[in-house]
Amino acid sequence: MQAPALPANESPRLQALRSLGLLDTQNEERFSRYVRLAKSLIDVPIATISLVDSNRQWFKGCEGLEMSETPRNISFCGHAILEQGVFYIPDAAADARFADNPLVTGAPHIRFYAGCPVYVPGNLAIGTLCVMDRRPRTLTPELLGRLRDLADCLQRELSLHVLLQDIQRLKSSPALTALAQHG
């Protein structure tokens, strides 16, 4: 098994991830919607929005798995955040990087994986939108492109989340309050 490498921008990436305030939070319909769409689009039993933290990947949205996180060192998504387009593994059991991975050899028995890195402003990949199956799968370039399109929509959702956080911070800024009082 090959553990994923760390991105060159790991420190600012983790800072951006944590500043989102999404880790270890309740399910939200706005994220669950993307998981359902990805699952349906690719016709797979498993889809997640995975946030890749320092030692784990945590699922902000998940369908088809009975777990809420896995260790980062065995995660497929840890590899996917290093890519630009779609990280695609048609058969994990036939891929030397994953053949002896506990997620392949044991539950949930992942054989197919396709994951798109999801970025926040600053070009920081904080996680993925991914789909998985318990059997090998081959996807057409068109389907891979549609998955990337859906991940781009999720990225816009996260960018909007960051923008709304910035607006809230500005609204509660003492300098802005003082300016409004004297303006």
Rank of each mutant, 00 (worst) to 15 (best):
104 V>C: 05
103 L>F: 06
124 L>E: 01
118 V>P: 06
119 Y>A: 08
127 G>Q: 03
129 L>I: 10
126 I>S: 00
114 A>Q: 11
124 L>R: 09
118 V>F: 01
123 N>R: 14
115 G>V: 11
97 R>A: 01
108 P>S: 11
98 F>M: 14
99 A>P: 04
107 A>T: 15
108 P>D: 02
118 V>K: 08
113 Y>F: 15
99 A>F: 02
119 Y>F: 15
124 L>V: 10
122 G>I: 04
129 L>M: 06
119 Y>P: 00
126 I>D: 02
122 G>K: 01
108 P>H: 06
106 G>K: 14
105 T>G: 12
112 F>A: 10
105 T>D: 07
113 Y>S: 09
121 P>K: 05
103 L>W: 11
100 D>F: 03
107 A>E: 13
101 N>M: 00
96 A>R: 03
117 P>S: 10
124 L>Q: 15
97 R>D: 13
97 R>E: 02
108 P>I: 10
109 H>F: 14
103 L>H: 03
112 F>L: 03
124 L>M: 12
116 C>R: 09
117 P>N: 11
115 G>N: 01
111 R>S: 09
127 G>N: 04
104 V>Q: 03
119 Y>I: 06
129 L>A: 08
99 A>K: 13
116 C>S: 14
128 T>I: 03
103 L>N: 01
121 P>Q: 13
96 A>Q: 12
123 N>T: 14
115 G>A: 09
102 P>A: 12
115 G>H: 01
112 F>G: 12
97 R>I: 04
121 P>D: 10
117 P>V: 08
125 A>G: 15
102 P>C: 07
104 V>D: 12
117 P>C: 12
99 A>E: 08
122 G>F: 13
113 Y>I: 09
100 D>C: 05
101 N>I: 08
100 D>T: 13
103 L>I: 14
98 F>S: 12
122 G>Q: 05
117 P>E: 08
125 A>K: 04
128 T>F: 08
121 P>G: 12
99 A>N: 00
119 Y>L: 13
120 V>A: 10
112 F>H: 04
113 Y>M: 10
113 Y>A: 04
120 V>D: 00
108 P>C: 01
109 H>Q: 02
119 Y>W: 07
129 L>G: 09
110 I>P: 00
114 A>H: 14
96 A>P: 15
121 P>S: 15
129 L>C: 08
111 R>A: 05
111 R>T: 03
106 G>R: 06
122 G>S: 13
109 H>P: 00
105 T>L: 05
123 N>P: 08
118 V>D: 06
122 G>W: 14
119 Y>Q: 07
112 F>Q: 02
98 F>K: 15
109 H>M: 02
120 V>K: 02
117 P>Y: 05
126 I>M: 03
128 T>C: 09
104 V>G: 13
127 G>T: 06
103 L>M: 14
96 A>H: 07
124 L>P: 06
107 A>G: 03
102 P>K: 09
112 F>C: 00
116 C>E: 05
101 N>G: 05
114 A>C: 01
101 N>K: 13
112 F>R: 04
105 T>K: 11
108 P>Y: 10
99 A>G: 09
128 T>H: 04
100 D>G: 01
126 I>E: 00
123 N>I: 01
121 P>N: 12
115 G>L: 08
104 V>A: 06
120 V>L: 10
112 F>T: 05
